[in-house]
Write a protein that binds this DNA or RNA. Structure first.
Length: 822
DNA sequence: GTAGGGTTAG
C-alpha cells in the first residue's frame, strides 16, 4: 500500500509528465502512510461516497469526481481548489494524493499556491516525521523564502507539539512577519509554556519593534489568564483600548483574563462597558466567560442571575453555557437544580456534547447521586480521558476506592496511557485502601510517565506511603521532590503524625516554616493534633496565635481542632472559650467539646450541653453518643449511660456500633459491674475486637477479678496472639495477687514467643521545654529530686487507701521545645 | 495560500 498509484489507479493512462519529478517524491511522502479516513469524513459532503470507498479501497474515487480528464489535474486553480476542499473536509491523505498526481503530471512548481494547505494536511495527520520530510523538500524546492510557507510550517510544528523544530525554523527566518510572531506566541501558549509565550510577545515589541495586533493580544491574554498575571493583562488591556481594538473576541479575552486573575470587578466593567454594542451583546461567548468566571470565583448568585438574564435576553445557551451552569450546580451541591439543568440541556439537544456530558457526570457525583453519574458515564459513546478522570477521581474521593481502581484498570487496559489526573486519583484510592502493592505499581507508572515532578502526584505518593505505614518511603519521595508546596509538606507532616512520629512532624513543621512555605488550615489542624498527642501546650498556643493573625479565627475546622487540642493538653477552660466564641458550630464542634469535658470529668456540663445541642437543631450522630458515653464512663455515670443508649436507638434510630458498646463496657467495668459487661459483649450484635476485651481486662485488673480476667485474656489472645500489652497486663494482675506461678507462666510465654514490649514513655512540658520520662533511666539532672517527690506522693497515696501502680521512671531532658525525641 | 477567543478533572 506504499505507492499512491496502487489505489488511485489513474496515472497509468496519463500522458508523460511535462516536468520530471525532481526525485522520488512519491515514496518520500507515502513511505509509511496508512489509509485512515477521519471520522470527520462521514459528515462531509463526500460522506456517502467516501464511506463506500472504505470497502472498495482499490477503486479510484478521484476520477469520477473531478479528475475525469488530465486537463483538470494540470489546471492549477482547479487542483488547488480540490486540494483545499479535501483538506477542509478532512480528506488529508487524498489531498496529498492529488498533489502527487499534479507533480506526476508535470505542473510547474513555480505556480504552486497550495503549499500552506498541503502543509496543514500533514499537520492534521499529526505525523512529525512526515512534516520534517516535507520541510526538507520545501528547502530543496526553494520555496522557504515564501513567508506563507514558513508560517504554515511553524503552525504545523506547534500542532505536532514540536516546539524545538518551530523555534529553530523561526530563528532561521530573516524576514519574520506578524503572523510568524503570532504563531510563536500562540504556539507557546497552547503548548502550556505561558511564560515562553509572553517572552515572545515582549521580544516582538521590544527588540523587533513589531506592534501587536489583535491576534497577538488575544494569545498573550490567554497566557496572562493561565499564569494569573494581572499586571501584564492590564498592560495589554491598556494597549487594546489605546489602539481602538475592541471586538467581541478581545472583549471575551479581556473579561476572561480578569476573571481568571480573580479580578471580578474589572471583568464586570468590561462586560458592562460594551453592552451598547449589539454584536458583542449577542455574542454567547462573552456571556459564557462571565458566567463561568463568576462560578469559578465563587460568585454563585451573580452567576445564576446572569444566566437568567441571558435567557431573558433570548440568547441561546450553547454547550459551554451548559458546562458553566453545571459546574455551578456542582458547587451548589443542589441535586434538584442540577437535574433541572440536565433536563434543559436535553431540551436544547446539548446533552450529548462530551463536555456537557462530563460536567453532568461530575455534577451528579458532587451532588451525591453516584448512580446517575455512573449511568451517564456507562452509556456515553464519546468518553475521553477527561470523562474517565472525572469518574475515577470522584469514586476515589467519595468512598468508592475499589471502584476507582477497577475503572483505572479498565482504562489502562483500553488506552494504555493514563494522564496525571487519573494517576493521582488511583494513588488516592490506594491511600484510602492502604494498598501498598498497588501503590508501588502506580508509583512506577508515574515515574515512567514523567509525572513525579507534578507536585500533586508527589504529595499523593507521600500520602500513600504514609497511609500504608511506610514512612521511610514517604520521606524518600518527599525529599526527592523538586517543588514542595504546602500540600506536600502537609502530606509529610500528617504522615509523621499518623505513624507515631509526632516529634518528626513538629520538626518538619519548623522546617516548612523556615522554607517560607505558609501553612494552611490543613497544616494547622495537623500540627494541632500533634500538639494534642504530645500535650504540647506552648506550641498549641503559638499555632492558635498564628491562626488568629492569619484571619482563620472563625474557621470551623480550625476551631474544632483548637478546642480538642486545648482539652487534650489539659486546658479545659481555653477549650471551652474557643467553643463559646465560635461563630459557627457543626456537629464535630459539639462532639469535641463533649469529649473534652467528659475527659475532664465534667459529665454534668456535658449533659446540659447535649440538651442545648438538641435544641439548636443539630442532629447527633454516632460520634456524639460515643462522646456522651465516654463522659459517663469517665464519671462513673452508669444510669445516664444507658439513658443515652436508649435515646440513641429509640429516638434517633441510630444502631449502636462497636464503638458505643466499647464505651458501655468501659463504663460498666469501671463501675465494677464486670459480669454485666461480660454479658453485654457476648450479647451485642457486633463482633468484639481486642479493644473491647482489653477494656474489660483492665477493669478486671483494677477490681481484682482474676477468674474473669483469665477468660477475657483467652478471648483477646485468640484474636491477637502476639499482643504483648495484654499479656503484661495479665501478668501484672497475677502479680498483684501473688500468683507467682501464673506470673511465671505468662512471662515464659512472652519470652518463648519472642515478644518484646516497647518501653513506655511520658513527658511534661515545663517552661517551653519538654522533659521525657522513660523506664529504667536515671539520666535527668534532677532525677534525685524527682524520685524523692515521687516517693512522698506514693506514701500519701497509700495513706489515702490507694494501691499505686508500679512507678515510672526517669527523666530525660530535651532542650528543644518541640517534642520528646528532640 | 499562513496565525486567533470562551469548554470538563486535582
Amino acid at each position: 500500500m506504499a505507492v499512491v498509484g496502487s489505489h488511485v489507479g489513474v496515472h497509468r493512462d496519463l500522458p508523460t509528465p511535462l516536468v520530471r519529478i525532481p526525485y522520488n517524491l512519491k515514496n518520500a511522502f507515502f513511505s509509511s502512510m496508512e489509509f485512515k479516513p477521519s471520522i470527520k469524513s462521514y459528515h462531509s459532503k463526500f460522506g456517502n461516497f467516501y464511506s463506500e470507498l472504505r470497502f472498495h479501497k482499490k477503486t479510484s474515487f478521484l476520477t469520477p469526481v473531478v479528475l475525469s480528464s488530465d486537463q483538470s489535474i494540470t489546471d492549477v486553480s482547479m487542483s488547488s481548489k480540490l486540494i483545499k476542499d479535501l483538506v477542509e473536509d478532512g480528506f488529508f491523505v487524498d489531498a496529498l494524493k492529488v498533489f502527487v498526481k499534479m507533480l506526476e503530471c508535470g505542473v510547474p512548481l513555480a505556480e504552486f499556491r497550495f503549499f500552506p494547505i498541503l502543509i496543514k494536511a500533514f499537520g492534521e495527520l499529526s505525523d512529525v516525521e512526515k512534516v520534517r520530510e516535507i520541510h526538507g523538500h520545501l528547502v530543496k524546492f526553494g520555496v522557504l523564502d515564501d513567508i506563507y510557507v514558513v508560517n504554515s510550517l511553524l503552525s504545523v510544528y506547534w500542532k505536532c507539539g514540536e516546539a524545538r523544530d518551530a523555534m529553530q525554523l523561526f530563528w532561521n527566518v530573516p524576514e519574520k512577519d506578524s503572523v510568524s510572531w503570532n504563531t510563536m506566541i500562540s504556539g507557546f501558549c497552547r503548548s502550556g509554556d505561558y511564560v515562553g509565550s509572553l517572552r515572545m510577545f515582549s521580544l516582538m515589541i521590544g527588540e523587533h519593534g513589531v506592534l501587536p495586533n489583535r491576534v497577538a493580544c488575544l494569545s498573550a491574554l490567554s497566557s496572562c489568564s493561565a499564569l494569573e498575571y494581572l499586571l501584564q493583562g492590564k498592560e495589554i488591556h491598556a494597549f487594546v483600548v489605546k489602539s481602538g481594538l475592541d471586538d467581541d473576541f478581545l472583549i471575551s479575552g479581556l473579561a476572561d483574563m480578569y476573571m481568571k486573575c480573580g479580578d471580578v470587578k474589572n471583568a464586570e466593567s468590561i462586560f458592562k462597558g460594551v453592552f451598547y454594542n449589539e454584536d458583542i451583546r449577542e455574542n454567547t461567548v462573552v456571556w459564557n466567560v462571565m458566567i463561568l468566571g463568576y462560578v469559578s470565583n465563587g460568585y454563585l448568585s451573580q452567576a445564576v442571575e446572569l444566566f437568567l438574564e441571558m435567557l431573558a435576553t433570548s440568547i441561546l445557551p450553547d454547550s459551554s453555557t451548559m458546562v458553566a451552569v453545571l459546574v455551578f450546580c456542582s458547587w451548589l451541591l443542589d441535586l434538584a437544580v442540577g437535574k433541572q439543568i440536565h433536563g434543559f440541556a436535553i431540551s436544547l439537544e446539548l446533552d450529548k456534547d462530551i463536555r456537557v456530558e462530563t460536567a453532568l457526570i461530575d455534577m451528579y457525583f458532587k451532588c451525591g447521586d453516584t448512580k446517575a453519574g455512573l449511568d451517564i458515564f456507562k452509556s456515553s459513546p464519546d468518553r475521553n480521558v477527561v470523562t474517565w478522570g472525572v469518574v475515577i477521581s470522584n469514586c476515589a474521593q467519595n468512598g468508592l476506592p475499589t471502584e476507582a481502581l477497577d475503572l483505572f484498570h479498565n482504562y489502562r487496559m483500553k488506552n494504555g496511557f493514563a494522564d496525571s489526573v487519573i494517576v493521582l486519583a488511583a494513588l488516592r484510592a490506594c491511600s484510602s485502601l492502604t494498598l501498598k502493592s498497588k501503590g508501588l505499581e502506580i508509583h512506577g507508572l508515574a515515574i515512567k510517565s514523567g509525572f513525579c515532578s507534578d507536585v500533586f502526584i508527589g504529595s499523593a505518593l507521600v500520602d500513600m506511603y504514609a497511609k500504608c505505614r511506610d514512612i521511610e518511603s514517604a520521606e524518600k519521595v518527599f525529599y526527592k521532590l523538586l517543588d514542595k508546596d504546602f500540600i506536600s509538606w502537609n502530606a509529610l507532616i500528617s504522615g509523621y503524625a499518623q505513624n507515631g512520629c509526632p516529634d518528626k512532624a513538629l520538626k518538619a513543621f519548623r522546617e516548612m516554616q523556615s522554607e517560607q512555605i505558609t501553612p494552611n488550615t490543613v497544616t494547622s489542624a495537623c500540627v494541632l493534633s500533634v500538639c494534642a498527642h504530645l500535650s504540647a501546650m506552648t506550641l498549641c498556643k503559638e499555632v492558635h496565635g498564628h491562626l488568629l493573625r492569619r484571619g482563620f479565627g472563625s474557621n470551623v475546622l480550625i476551631n474544632n481542632s483548637l478546642l480538642a487540642t486545648y482539652a487534650k493538653c489539659g486546658d479545659i477552660s481555653s477549650s471551652w472559650t474557643v467553643f463559646r466564641k465560635m461563630p459557627e458550630k457543626n456537629e464535630v464542634s459539639w462532639n469535641s467539646v463533649f469529649l473534652g469535658l467528659g475527659m475532664h470529668g465534667q459529665a454534668d456540663e456535658v449533659f446540659v450541653l447535649f440538651e442545648e445541642m438538641e435544641e439548636s437543631g443539630i442532629k447527633p450522630d454516632h460520634a456524639t453518643f460515643t462522646a456522651l458515653l465516654s463522659a459517663c464512663s469517665h464519671s462513673g455515670r452508669v444510669e445516664e449511660g444507658f439513658k443515652y443508649l436508649r435515646r440513641m436507638s429509640e429516638y434517633y434510630k441510630l444502631v449502636p456500633q462497636l464503638e458505643q458498646y466499647t464505651c458501655l463496657v468501659d463504663l460498666l467495668g469501671r463501675a465494677g459491674h464486670l459480669h454485666q459487661a461480660y454479658d453485654m459483649i457476648l450479647a451485642m450484635p457486633c463482633v468484639p475486637d481486642d479493644r473491647i476485651w482489653g477494656s474489660l481486662l483492665a477493669a478486671c485488673k483494677s477490681h481484682g477479678d482474676k477468674r474473669l480476667a483469665k477468660v477475657v485474656a483467652n478471648h483477646i489472645l485468640q484474636l491477637d496472639p502476639t499482643n504483648i500489652g495484654y499479656r503484661v497486663l495479665l501478668s501484672n494482675l497475677y502479680e498483684d495477687h501473688g500468683k507467682w506461678d501464673e506470673v511465671t507462666r505468662v512471662r515464659t510465654e512472652i519470652k518463648d514467643m519472642g515478644l518484646k514490649k516497647t518501653p513506655g514513655c511520658s513527658w511534661i512540658e515545663v517552661n517551653n521545654t519538654i522533659h521525657t520520662f522513660s523506664a529504667g533511666d536515671r539520666s535527668h539532672y534532677q532525677s534525685v529530686d524527682i524520685y524523692d517527690a515521687l516517693e512522698s506522693l506514693t506514701i500519701q497515696t497509700r495513706k489515702a487507701g490507694y494501691v499505686p501502680q508500679s512507678p515510672l521512671v526517669t527523666v530525660v531532658p530535651t532542650n528543644q521545645p518541640n517534642g520528646p525525641n528532640g
